[in-house]
Design a protein around this nucleic acid. Sequence first.
DNA 1: TTTCAAAATTCGATATATTCGATATATCAA
DNA 2: TTGATATATCGAATATATCGAATTTTGAAA
Lengths: 298, 298
Amino acid sequence: MRMNTKNLITFKTILEMGSFQKAADKLGYTQSTVTFQIKQLEEELELELFEKIGRRMELTQAGKDIMPYVDMILQGAEQISNYGKSLSEISGTIKLAIPDSILIYTMQPFIQAFRHEAPNIQLVIHSLQAGQIIQAVMDGIADIGINCEKDNYPDTIIHNNLGTYRILLVASPFMDRGLLDFVTPHQRKPFSLICNEPDGYYQLEMNKYLDKKDIVLNQYMKVQSIEAVKRCVMNNLGIAVVPSYSVEEELKNGALIPIKTELDEKIYNAIYVYHKNKWISPQMKLALDLLIKIKADC
Amino acid sequence: MRMNTKNLITFKTILEMGSFQKAADKLGYTQSTVTFQIKQLEEELELELFEKIGRRMELTQAGKDIMPYVDMILQGAEQISNYGKSLSEISGTIKLAIPDSILIYTMQPFIQAFRHEAPNIQLVIHSLQAGQIIQAVMDGIADIGINCEKDNYPDTIIHNNLGTYRILLVASPFMDRGLLDFVTPHQRKPFSLICNEPDGYYQLEMNKYLDKKDIVLNQYMKVQSIEAVKRCVMNNLGIAVVPSYSVEEELKNGALIPIKTELDEKIYNAIYVYHKNKWISPQMKLALDLLIKIKADC
DNA sequence: TTTCAAAATTCGATATATTCGATATATCAA
DNA sequence: TTGATATATCGAATATATCGAATTTTGAAA
């Protein structure tokens, strides 16, 4: 039952970095020290943690099974080391799983608020395929996931809606209205599609739609930010695909106009999910509280 | 964030034993080693754990505050060290708080079953006043409490009924029926009150009743076990106060007869309680499962 | 007040544990 | 086979933990 956090941290670092050598580099040890520490840990726990598969070290079943308890120990140690510290001082890590690109924009207010409230908590963002989010949360790879699906969760997963939004195609009000028919198929359009993330979710959805309709635009134009996208569209440099919430203001005051497409009705949800059985650390509580707060502000 | 279980165990042992010296004795260290370990722990955690109040070491507020996390760490370590072991091999401690004496009898089947299933889990039984049970569970002094009250629990406490029973005054069927009026006040009875636990709950309740009625018995007679009590009563050596469940068989076959008192209607409950926010370790789960199983068997 | 006993602390000596650096071994791919 | 990559082993240097003896602190008894 004798055990120390140093060896456990080395153990976790090996899993994170993928090799003894890289863990040694990260932790400032030599590789032989890491080998020694793991051997010592294995003796202390009376368990084999790794087995050599070829030139790779792989976690044994026992190693996988004890992970929740290793985390329990390290979490406990982390909480103690944060004792008495204010929100702006506490450290730790929160791992978010977010489906590729699209939702980053939605999450911006959250990420900013989080960094502001607790600058020392490391916010690790895994960008994953939408289908892998739940798995990541179930496996404990991510503490919190952001997902699009509204239903169909296993009951070990707690989920809450953060808001709904639509994908819109927008244009400048000075654009020739005759060119804005995006329903009739087989067209060639003499203007650009402006975007900031060509591989983003909106973009891909819209591309699929345009492909299906065989509507081809002049060229693609990539700019830095979604703000830049909007300004370009307002200056009639082309049209753009945007999430509805990002252009609400401009649609209201007429700086931008929506283009009718058959994608109009497509509604998306931003849902945050986390594992039911996970201990909610103060760090995680802060993240969840902020998600709810940001939602209320919208 | 560097920390080891050795120092934490020493820390916990000091609290348990009440002094550095006793902790050193228990753990097989010298006193100076314990001092060193605590000093080291304080440096690692960057916290003062003890303050000298006179010649006594008292836990600081910080010391109290971090206890849940210390427990979290030691629990985690315990689970790892139990990994792969069968139920009969796993170790650990479960602390029960039981109101003085009375319920020990009711708990006997549970205690036996528990010892049988997991002989290496130490079952610590705190005998407390009924009023202190909830507090003990809330303070984390006890993992599971057994209580008599049916309602009126704070919502941090989970409670479940284990069974109900009554207090009975029993006599031999050969006893002169004329002597068995325990309702009319101011009587002197020419026989003994037999009991095995003079300070037990039943006994005290019955004493109160007899005092109020001013019914005085010949003498008190103390025997070893509740089984002995029953045998004495059957042999007409006197009468006894017993919980109803312990004499069901004898009442049915007529070996004993109930004496009518105004206590007849008094119903007691055995309720087990535990803290909602506590992590339910496999050891604790076993205890809770057995409590439910024993209940079902009754 | 003085004295005593029960605790905790300090400190030097020593045994034990940790880390490094160099080298050996194993595996895969070319 | 050779080169690249990865872990294991071993001895020496260093750091840490423990003990035991002497010291200090404190409350209570004389």
